[in-house]
Design a protein around this nucleic acid. Structure first.
Lengths: 147, 147
DNA sequence: CCCGTGAAGTGGGATATAGTGGGATTTCGA
DNA sequence: TCGAAATCCCACTATATCCCACTTCACGGG
C-alpha cells in the first residue's frame, strides 16, 4: 500500500541517529524512494517527512498561495528554509538535524506517525497530549467517513 | 458473495496471533485480497478490518479535506496512525498489533463480526453487552435504516 | 455403526530481522 | 598536519516471522 500508516516510537542515540520504522521504509520503497527523504518543519509542533517527490508536490500547493499575503511569505520561508534532505543508511537510520529536533522539542525518543501522504515526527509526550485532546472529536468526524 | 457476514469467536495465542475465520477469508478472496487486510480503530470500541482497496477508498474522503484546518490534521492523525496493514500467513492467521488490542480492550479472545463492507473485531464481553443493549431497539432502528 | 479423510483452528520450536550500541575510518576545517 | 565531527561498518539482542505438528470436528464411505 502506498500510504503511510501506523505509529511507532524509536530511540535516538548519542549521534542523533534514529531507525526509520520498517513499515515506513516499506511504504517509501513502494513510493519509489527507498533511501531518500525530506524532513521539514510541520504543523502543530511536529516534523513532516516526505519522499522527495512528495515534498515537491507539497511545494506546488505552497507556490499557488497568494504571494501578496505576508503570512504566505512567512510560511514559505519556514517550509523551505527548514527543509533538509536525509538519506537512510544501510541499517535503516536517518540523522535528525539538531535544528529540527530543537524546533519541535524532540530529545531522546521520537514518534513516527504515518499520516497518509506524509509521516510525522513527534516528541512522545507532545504526541500523547495531542491525541488525548483530539480523540473526543474523532468519533464525531468519523461517522462522515466510515461506511 | 462479496459481503462480509457471520459472527465467529476465536482465541488469541501468546504471540498475538488469531485465525481469520474461513468464511471471512473466502469473502476476502472474492474481493481480490486473499492475504492482505488493513486493521484500524473503529467506532463504539471495536476495530474495523478492510481490504487495502476498501481502506484506500475511505482515505479519499479524508484527502479532500483542507490541510490548513487543524481539525483536519487531527482527524488524519487518528485515522491513519491507528491503521495497520496485516498479512494473513499461510495458516490463515494475522497478528493483532498490541496498540489496537489495547485500544478496544481485546485480551485473549476476539469476535469477528461480518458487517457488509467491513469486518469488526470485538472483545467478546463488549460485543455481548452491545448486542444485549441494542437488540430491543432493533425494530425501531430499522425505521432509520430502511426507507 | 465405525473408521478414514480432510479442513479449520491452535500451539510451539527454529530461524530471520528490526532496532540499537559502539568502534573504526574518513572527511573537513583550522 | 592535526583535531573534531560526521559517516561507515560490524556486532548484539529481543522480537517477530516462518514452518511444522497436533487436535478437533464434519463429512462420507465401507
Amino acid at each position: 500500500m502506498n500510504l503511510f500508516t501506523g505509529c511507532y516510537t524509536h530511540a535516538i542515540d548519542a549521534k542523533n541517529r534514529v531507525s526509520v520504522p520498517r513499515k515506513i521504509v516499506d511504504t517509501l520503497r513502494d513510493l519509489g524512494s527507498p533511501e531518500e527523504v525530506v524532513l521539514t518543519a510541520g504543523l502543530d509542533r511536529c516534523l513532516f517527512l516526505y519522499t522527495p517527490a512528495g515534498f515537491e508536490q507539497m511545494g506546488k500547493a505552497v507556490e499557488s498561495s497568494p504571494l501578496g499575503q505576508s503570512s504566505t511569505r512567512d510560511f514559505q520561508r519556514n517550509f523551505y528554509a527548514s527543509a533538509e534532505p536525509c538519506s537512510i543508511d544501510r541499517s535503516g537510520r536517518i540523522v535528525l538535524p539538531e535544528a529540527l529536533k530543537a524546533l519541535v522539542g524532540i530529545t531522546d525518543r521520537v514518534v513516527f506517525a504515518g499520516v497518509g501522504q506524509r509521516v510525522e515526527l513527534w516528541q512522545p509526550e507532545t504526541w500523547e497530549a495531542r491525541q488525548m485532546a483530539s480523540r473526543p472529536q474523532y468519533d464525531k468526524q468519523a461517522t462522515d467517513v466510515f461506511r
